[in-house]
Design a protein around this nucleic acid. Sequence first.
DNA 1: TGTACATCAGTGAACGCGCGTTCACTGATGTAC
DNA 2: TGTACATCAGTGAACGCGCGTTCACTGATGTAC
Lengths: 214, 214
Amino acid sequence: VHDGEAPGRRRLTRAEAKEQTRQRLLDSAARVFADKGFAGASLEEISEAAGYSTGALYSNFQGKEELFLDLLRTRWSRAIARRAEVVAKALDDEVAGGADLFDALSRFAVQLSERDREFAALGAELWLYAIRNPEAMGLVAAMLGEQVARLEPVIAAAMERYGWAAQMTPKELTTVAVILFDGLIRQRRIDASAVPDDLFARALRSLFGGPATP
Amino acid sequence: VHDGEAPGRRRLTRAEAKEQTRQRLLDSAARVFADKGFAGASLEEISEAAGYSTGALYSNFQGKEELFLDLLRTRWSRAIARRAEVVAKALDDEVAGGADLFDALSRFAVQLSERDREFAALGAELWLYAIRNPEAMGLVAAMLGEQVARLEPVIAAAMERYGWAAQMTPKELTTVAVILFDGLIRQRRIDASAVPDDLFARALRSLFGGPATP
DNA sequence: TGTACATCAGTGAACGCGCGTTCACTGATGTAC
DNA sequence: TGTACATCAGTGAACGCGCGTTCACTGATGTAC
């Protein structure tokens, strides 16, 4: 009680303390890997920023590679789940009779292009890692597959509502939409003037089958 | 004549010899940077693979960064010009009454996803470099702008022919098409089964305004 | 054409540095009685 | 509850190594006469 601990916060068990350390190291690793890249990041910087010595890293992870892959495995799924929720919510609001779905998604994309630099950098880093370490390709394919699988029902529902893009199955359209989404966010970060706020909305409308809105 | 030189190949001047060395180093750098990434590539590996010592690199470039940026500046423009030519040719063939434009582009994308691993990796590497070194952002924006500018007339011509995607200007549609093109190539390399051969063609048809082909 | 000197592209050894990883150690937490 | 010992998360110094960069040197190319 008397050395700065929050009152009412009980002492952690050994296992809980270790898990806390692990999470702090992962948070720090996310920042540093995003800033410097896999090869450019140093374990000393990661552990020091988390408030530990380098040894702590080896007490929690097998080495640099395992830290990197663990990080992406856990954080990626979390970020994708968040995305899927936002999209599903936008569709619900739409159905409940509010704003336009495509506009809502477009606004979401703009928001993401301004925040979430970390996620984008880690995604690119992972892609590069996979083409250089083919044994990790399966992991990446699974992660992207999860993203499409999560969003597909939402897209399928939107197709029911806005008309079927005759050319594509729901799964294919989801793949295309995800790629477009990520690509426009990336492009916007490089040159904001080339990607107007509502471009994603308009591209989606075209994909969903022709001129829909005035 | 008597020491292995090709007959009829005159001796190079000092400047020509230096330029040849420079190009060989750039070729080697393209391979190694694509394989290992900017931070992961070593100057010794690059120069050795080109058949020179590391000193030769410093005789031709200011350092690692300048080598990397020089490489991308020169090779990127070249690759983009090649792409634009192929697309323009596909449209010409189309007009001359051959196959379907979208199919031709889709076939081109499939080809690229199988070759050109190097170009894709360097592009991703450059993007990461730019978000980490904002002073290089302008260079990247210019390079991507060049790509869109080159392809825009072709897309505009296709729009005249296939109908206007009411939602987008030719420039915007070009941006979207380029992003989709690169994204599908990338996706295909990770998981070929998620991206059928003709998905790009079908997505383009939707973007160009609704169901066009049987 | 021939000779004497200047230039400079490329050599290769050396440098200092930061990296990933290891390991003997510490002291707080957990367990047995 | 109290004591004695075991465990083990995290420490921090040390290691060997490969890296980017430098630099005195070399010998072929270029220049002047």
